[in-house]
Amino acid sequence: MKLTLRVWRQRHADAEGHMSTYEVDGISPDMSFLEMLDTLNEELILKGEEPVAFDHDCREGICGACSLVINGDAHGPERTTTCQLHMRSFADGDTIDVEPWRAAAFPVVKDLVVDRSAFDRIIQAGGYISVPTGSAPEAHATPVPKPDADSAFEHAECIGCGACVAACPNGSAMLFTSAKVNHLNVLPQGAPERETRVLDMVAQMDSEGFGGCTLTGECATACPKGIPLPSIAAMNKEWLRATRKVRR
């Protein structure tokens, strides 16, 4: 496959960025999108040019490091992570636009790499449970109803890649935060901090400069892990409940 790539290049956080055009040849349809970028970078290095910086880690679709907006879609045309996107999803001769996540709370570090530490701080604000450390607890000491376990697992699938923020026209982190809140709030283990968790995580989300939710649904469409849009309504319900409860 022969492709034309238009890639966002930005030397550092404060530099002006621009789209640069590159031609790549000899791309196999079985390559992943990241392997295609590796090929481009090898060529750039041989030519003595600066390779394109992009985030990646496990390349198995489970770590949430890869983060590219491809032809206007977070993670590209398939519902998966960029690393699990294969070149067979494109046609020979295509022109492909590659851009970084765009959000005020995710500033560009270099080229296609953005700083997603705002997500870490949202987790630190309440994405944990307080348990005594030591020996493992008895497995059946805390019964969890199957529907609750399923719901918790569905939300726990969030890998924190930030595609929801990238896809949202408001740069909102509501889907991410709701996945993390709901994951723990439906479980008995998360019950002691049920109220403080949602209040503190939403407050942190707001203070990071993410936008508000206008329920466009772009986040849930882009999510490679299929976190559903009603997750946001569930978090709103938790927030309203907690807001009333902590003042009683």
Binding site: R102, A104, G212, L215
Partner: peptide, 27 residues
């Protein structure tokens, strides 16, 4: 909220796609 939303997404994507429903976009 709108001011906050616009500030949260200062740079637009070069590759634009029609997004969301007409009702949603015209709120």
């Amino acid at each position: 909220l709108s001011r906050r939303d616009l500030k949260a997404r200062p740079s637009k994507y070069v590759h634009k796609k029609p997004r969301a429903s007409y009702a949603t976009r015209t709120m």
